[in-house]
Amino acid sequence: MNIIVCLKQVPDTESQIKIGPDGKSIVTDDIKWVMNPYDEFGVEEALRLKEKHGGEVTVVGLGPKRVTESIRTALAMGADKGILVSDEALDGSDSLANAKAIAAAVKDLDYDLIFTGQRGVDDDLGLVGATIAELLGIPQFSIIVKVEVAEDGKSVKVERPIEGEALIIESNLPALITAQKGLNEPRYASLPGIMKAKKKPLEEKTLADLGLDSAEFGEGARKLKILELTPPPERAAGKIVEGETPQEKAAELAKLLHDEAKVL
């Protein structure tokens, strides 16, 4: 079975995020870029399925040239080939536009399954997976923690956690799955793997190569506009609840939760 994994490059979660002078974007100068952790679960799952059922894993990334490093990391983990969709006109695109470009890049490939992360840890929108599936006209299963492909490779059974229970869904292939934490533990890109990844094919495509009109991409074409970014509020100092007896303390706590924290 052939599997496509879509991946995004995001700031390392240990990076210090600073808001830029425009108030709408972040300063990217000192940021270390890594593969979106949820996409990594997708890569790992695709590799495990390939090991069991055979076939090929293709990794598709979108963004500036630096994204090749994350694609190569996936190749080092064991994926077979990579595609980078890169075009200056893509700068500032929203999730819908990005999904449109990725869908165009994969629509003519031979695939049984597509994986994306359930969301990017940068914007936390979780839109790209669903949009790609919609554009390709295939079923989509989001926030999945378990994937089982039937012996004949024609259908898939997935598990999605819901409020302490599990929803089990079966579907024909091809389908798109968005990976959630818990799906697996991704392997390391081993050192010999990294050396081998250099020799694996990595194709670069522009919007024109994909037959797309660059006017539909970029800042100007956004349907979703960012008005302002603000840092999370500083954590306020804690409060010690006063009272002589446990009863008094409980009453005081209930009062604070109701009047001040407004959670009751």
Binding site: E69, R72, T73, A189
Partner: peptide, 9 residues
């Protein structure tokens, strides 16, 4: 790039 991948691993 290779060094950066090794670093990440």
């Amino acid at each position: 790039e290779i060094h950066s991948m090794v670093r990440q691993t």
